[in-house]
Write a protein that binds this DNA or RNA. Sequence first.
RNA 1: GGGCCUGUGGCUUAGCCUGGACAUAGCGCCGGGCUUCUAACCCGGAUGCCGGGGGUUCGAAUCCCCCCAGGCCCGCCA
Length: 554
Amino acid sequence: MPDDMFATIDTAIRETAGVTDALLAEGGEHADLASTVAFSLAKQRKQAPVKIAQDLVAELKKRPELSTVTIEAKGPYINFIFGKAYVSDVIRAAVKPGYGNLETKTQRVVLEHTSANPNGPLHVGHIRNSIIGDTLARAFRKAGYPLEVEYYVNDMGRQIAIVVWGFNNLDSTQLPGEKEDAHIARIYIAANREIEKDEGITQQVNLLMQRVESGDPATVEKFKKEVSRCLDGFRVTMKNLNVAHDKFVWESDFIRNGSTEEIIGRLKEKPQAREDETLYLDLSEFGFENKYVIRRSDGTSVYAARDLAFHAWKGKNFDRVIDVLGADHKLIGAQLQCTMKVLGEKVPEIVFFEFVSLPEGSMSTRAGKFISADDLITEVRKRAFDEVTVRRPELPEDERRKIAASVGLAAIRYDIVKVSPEKSTVFDWKEALDFERQSGPYIQYAHARACSILEKADDVTECFELETEQEIALAKQIARFPGIIKRVVAELRPNLLAIYARELADTFNSFYHFEQVLKSEGKVRDRRLTLVLAVQNTLKEALETLGIDAIRSM
RNA sequence: GGGCCUGUGGCUUAGCCUGGACAUAGCGCCGGGCUUCUAACCCGGAUGCCGGGGGUUCGAAUCCCCCCAGGCCCGCCA
């Protein structure tokens, strides 16, 4: 609903009842908005809530600014139902391209997501990060924010050193047709097996890490080569998932440009700094009991130090810094935020998501226990192609493949984004391959159905005067969209959009089965076609914000 | 041992931050609907001590405390 409507009613209640909080909220099935202010006034006025509600309604009805709103007392509740003029305005806005776009902002936002270690392919856990992040990114752009999306490339960690050791010491020939990231995983897994057998290898790995930090050209080159190859693999996977980054930022750059040393220097001056063999921060005054190590005894920096430099850099270039991270990063994320505050730097906001596990236990790249995103994409597309072939046998094969790719993508993205990030999940093939209710394809189908009607209608004479209960219900569902976008970016909860899109599809499907569009005549036909156009446009905008193709036929 | 997250019909899940009108939907189950705009659909039905126990409140799935269960974290890894 438009904010001004909320604000108008909110103010009216506060003035009429003489309260500071109108207790105004969405009225669900009862009303567009409802207030429970009568409850809270009962004690003070020594009157029954029902009586207070009745009295307030009588007063509110006198206000000219509420003349188009139906106001009624239902027991102690005060219900507000918007008039037809409101519904007309909504549809008028919703038929225009870009419906749901909010006003342009000047606040610059940087969003980091995925940032998986380049030691093996993206698996179904990593892409939860990608999909949450990419959906947030799309929502931020829709909400009018200038946005940069970054991938932080961890190119100098122990895992990468292990990969490089493997390429140096093991048979590392790439198999025919083997994707780069899968190749790297194979060598990484094999190298880890060798390390388990021979502890001496760890020394060689440490040596590699020291060399890369000191900038030894040959070692740096080797690290860069394998990391780049892995990222090439990631790019293919992410493209298939409709996930995009504006910039890949390399961790090692923050060593080479001196900013890590600079941050370490500043940290040394802080009262929380402690130096013995290592340099670490004592953050116990903020509730962190463990040491926050910044530099190893051999003089090399740790991930935390480079991460601080990276975030300081982001804070200088952007007004709002957001990271999407797995729940295993909660502690270090909180320590990072705390340290940034100590340094007087901008504190990043962090969206955490809980783990995706397999029925047999948690995933592990090192142990080779994971389902890769590439395998998931292949399977889902195959299943989608079979489905399309059954439903549309008359279409040429390349057409069916195209639809299957879009349907498969929708199934994967929706399946992941619909769940609240704070919920841990167990990967389930049956659910991933389900194209029915509460799925991405279900919403695509509703959109394609609307497109089909519009196609057959030839011309649409716009008419915004809605009448029936089904029409009004659908229009009010459409009206919620801009508010949903606003909430997604304010609360950093992309699943709200997923739920909304499904509810809009539900409402449209009901409308479709109860109200004839093409077969009605005159004004009725005009207004219903206009409504279908509004739904189609809103579904399209919502799907695209979810990173799902709004295909016109399926 | 400590910290964080989660616990809602057989299964999955919304709502929880910002307390309010019969707790949201899907899968599965039972029954109905394709000579009708795309049935990847729609309509109806059964299924809930909202993990357990206390507390705050006129009112608690929602806020507070305790307990139980599961996940994650507590490294000179990232």
